[in-house]
C-alpha cells in the first residue's frame, strides 16, 4: 500500500491545509459528496435490476400457476414475517437517524443509531434463522429436495388432494386405493422463496459488515456535518434492503 499512499500524498503536495478525507480530484466536500451520492444511486439502480430478475420470475410463475403460490404461502409463518417487517422498518428509522446525527455533529447519537441498526439486522437474521431451520427440518426444501413431512402439512392446513393410485401399467381404476398428492410443482414456490429471501439475507449480512466499518469510523470520529457521505450512502443502501423486504413480505406471506 506504500506506493498508493505515496501517490496520493504527492497528488496533494500543492494544496494547503488539506483535509485527508477530501480526495485530490474533487474541488470541495460538496463536490465529493454529490459524486458519491450519484454513485450510490447508480449502485442501487443495479441492485433493483438484480432483484428485478427474481421478481420477474416470481410474476411469471405466479401468473401461470397461482394455485402453487396460494398453497405454498400457507407454509410460511405470517407472524414471524410481520415481526421481521417491523424490525426492518425500525432499523430504517435508526439508519435515517444516524445520518441526521452525523449532520448535527452528534457523535453519541450517531454511534447509538448505528448500533441499533446493526442490532435490528441481527434480530432480523435471527428470526429468519428460526423460520428457515423449522422448514428445512420438516423437509420443506426447494426444487428437487422438496419432501414435506406430514406434521408440517397439518400445521400449514394443507390437505393434499386424494387421487386413485395407478396400477402397474399406468391405468387408473377409480376404486383403487387412494394416495395423497400435493399440488404439482409446489416446490417451485419454495425455490423462489428461498432464492429471494436468501439473496435478501445475503444483502442484510453485507449491510451488517458495512455498518460495522461505519461504526468503527464513527467511533474514531471521522464524521461531522461537513463529511458524512459514507453514513448517508450506507443508509441509502440499507433503505433499499428494507424496501425489498417490504415487497417480499406481502408477495410471499400474505397472498392467501
Amino acid at each position: 500500500m506504500d506506493a498508493a499512499a505515496h501517490e496520493s500524498h504527492d497528488a496533494h503536495g500543492h494544496d494547503h491545509h488539506h483535509d485527508p478525507r477530501l480526495a485530490h480530484h474533487f474541488e470541495d466536500h460538496q463536490h465529493q459528496f454529490d459524486t458519491g451520492k450519484l454513485g450510490i444511486w447508480l449502485f442501487l439502480g443495479q441492485e433493483l435490476l438484480f432483484f428485478g430478475g427474481l421478481f420477474c420470475a416470481y410474476s411469471i410463475y405466479r401468473g401461470l400457476h397461482p394455485e402453487v403460490f396460494e398453497e405454498g404461502a400457507k407454509f410460511l409463518n405470517t407472524n414471524l414475517g410481520a415481526v421481521n417487517t417491523v424490525v426492518l422498518l425500525f432499523s430504517s428509522l435508526t439508519a435515517a437517524w444516524s445520518v441526521r446525527a452525523a449532520q448535527l455533529n452528534n457523535k453519541k447519537g450517531l454511534i447509538l443509531a448505528i448500533v441499533l441498526t446493526i442490532g435490528c439486522a441481527f434480530g432480523f437474521l435471527g428470526i429468519k434463522y428460526v423460520e428457515y431451520s423449522h422448514k428445512l427440518h420438516e423437509g420443506v426444501f426447494w426444487g428437487q429436495s422438496f419432501h414435506p413431512t406430514r406434521e408440517i402439512l397439518e400445521e400449514a392446513h394443507v390437505t393434499p388432494g386424494v387421487v386413485p393410485m395407478p396400477a402397474e401399467d399406468g391405468s387408473v381404476d377409480p376404486k383403487a386405493e387412494k394416495i395423497a398428492m400435493l399440488k404439482p410443482n409446489l416446490h417451485t414456490f419454495f425455490s423462489i422463496y428461498f432464492m429471494m429471501t436468501g439473496l435478501h439475507g445475503i444483502h442484510v449480512i453485507a449491510g451488517i459488515l458495512v455498518y460495522l466499518w461505519i461504526l468503527r469510523r464513527a467511533i474514531r470520529g471521522d464524521f461531522n456535518s461537513e463529511y458524512y457521505g459514507p453514513v448517508d450512502f450506507t443508509a441509502l443502501y440499507w433503505h433499499l434492503v428494507d424496501l425489498v423486504w417490504i415487497y417480499l413480505f406481502p408477495l410471499l406471506y400474505l397472498i392467501h
Binding site: 426447494w142 410443482n185 432464492m195
Partner: peptide, 26 residues
C-alpha cells in the same frame, strides 16, 4: 445485474436442483 441474477440462478440450479429453469422440475 440481470445477467448476474440469471447466472446465479443457473449456478444454484446446478448445485442444489432449484428447478427454476429445469423442465423436469416444472
Amino acid at each position: 445485474p440481470v445477467l448476474a441474477i440469471t447466472l446465479l440462478l443457473l449456478t444454484v440450479e446446478r448445485a442444489f436442483g432449484l428447478g427454476i429453469f429445469d423442465p423436469a422440475l416444472g
